[in-house]
């Protein structure tokens, strides 16, 4: 379980995260939603120890993340950041192989190779695995990065806007894959996601943020409500039940 207690973060004199406390349950998908600049990426970076908070503590399975060995953490928690630029000439397979770095420091065993192939297959990039990343489209690149995080084979998976650049088909496939990882392998997944309907259909819990604070939190059906959404986005949003899913209409 991930428990954040009274986290605060300043950038300069601006407090971008204010006293945020949140619990993330294991074996579920928790989606973080909210307007741009709400602090979602910053919160995920602190949870995954990439960024040090100015105040508060993050507990991962009961232990302070900043007091654990980075190398061990890399086998427990993996994060894909919002934007990933590669200048390097690397093939898809080489990138995905980095995911095994915490286990074998670059000298891949047969088991590692197996996991790498599996991860590439998950995101349907088998045919492109020997292509250089700079020869791929934005969506293909994004899938390669997701595959790398999956190859890391961690219990906690944090994905910051993973659907960026993905077409509809691949976005749906990606969300189905994430559900499968939760159901079949008991993974715990944290997402930042902008498409409210994807959040509604695929997540177990939703955390809504605004101005560096959590404004709503709970099971998906409690959050996907017109009045709650209005308070988050300042937008009139109708919620309809369509084939057992709660779908938002806001055009």
């Amino acid at each position: 379980m991930i428990v954040a207690e009274k986290l605060s973060k300043f950038f300069g004199s601006k407090k971008v995260i204010q006293d945020v406390s949140v619990e993330v349950k294991r074996g579920a998908i928790t989606s973080f939603i909210g307007p741009n600049g709400a602090g979602k990426s910053t919160l995920l970076s602190m949870v995954s120890r990439l960024l040090k908070q100015d105040d508060g503590i993050v507990y991962l399975d009961g232990k302070d993340v900043h007091k654990q060995k980075s190398k061990d953490l890399a086998k427990t928690i993996a994060i894909l950041r919002q934007s990933n630029v590669v200048q390097m000439r690397l093939t898809v397979r080489e990138l995905v192989s980095f995911g095994r770095f915490p286990y074998s420091s670059g000298r891949l065993t047969a088991e590692d190779e197996q996991k790498v192939s599996e991860a590439i297959a998950y995101v349907n990039l088998e045919e492109l695995e020997d292509k250089y990343l700079n020869e791929l489209s934005g969506g293909q690149k994004q899938r390669a990065f997701i595959a790398m995080v999956l190859a890391q084979d961690t219990e906690y998976i944090l994905l910051d806007e993973p659907l960026n650049n993905l077409d509809m088909k691949h976005a749906v496939q990606m969300m189905k894959l994430l559900r499968k990882l939760v159901e079949d392998f008991g993974k715990t997944i944290l997402l930042v996601i902008h498409d409210i309907n994807f959040a509604s259909v695929y997540s177990d819990r939703i955390v809504a943020m605004k101005d560096g604070q959590i404004v709503a939190e709970g099971p998906t059906e409690d959050i996907i409500q017109s009045d709650v959404l209005k308070s988050i986005y300042d937008l009139d949003i109708d919620v309809h039940n369509i084939s057992c899913n709660r779908i938002c209409v806001y055009f």
């Binding site: 995954s48 953490l73 980095f98 000298r107």
Partner: peptide
Amino acid sequence: FANMFTVAGMGEDFATNLGLP
């Protein structure tokens, strides 16, 4: 250190996520 230099080249956040000092 060759493998570690490669990973470090991907940037500090990327490398930290993989447990590289």
